[in-house]
Amino acid sequence: MNERHGPTDADLLTIAEQVWTSYLDVDGMSPLVPVPAEKPSLDVSASVSMTGAWRGHVVVRCSAAAARNAAAALLGVELDDVTTEDVTDALGELANIIGGNVKSLLPEPCALSLPHVLIHGESGYPHVVEVCRLSGTWREESVTISVLESALVVERTE
């Protein structure tokens, strides 16, 4: 009864490594380095939600500096040229890519939402349990990826 669909911490690391290799660490010089679980930075929070056979959220949280670094890398522009709009677009797309890949590990059918990005604050996710998490540092800045499942469809055994 306690069987639970969903990705693992290792799955999240694999997905993140693919994203970093493709877009954020193309030259292999600045990988995302996993670190022991820590309190996520709340500067920027980007998420996508899923409804259907599985319900929950994939959330990318990072420091403001990491978000600016990500936007600069994705857009191929200098850090000084990054705007708030760039950060919102870039982090939303990161959440979308990671969320889409997480979705492939979940039962079908599921629908993926458009991304939601909050700068300097975090959206609330009521009634969820964290299925897995990847905490890391990238260019010495905090990045955390979490998969949150709606507790309303999780059968607890404790």
């Binding site: 936007a71 857009l75 870039a90």
Partner: peptide, 11 residues
Amino acid sequence: DSRVMRQIVTR
């Protein structure tokens, strides 16, 4: 819908 992704695709 992501301008960032349109740029990445072009690149």
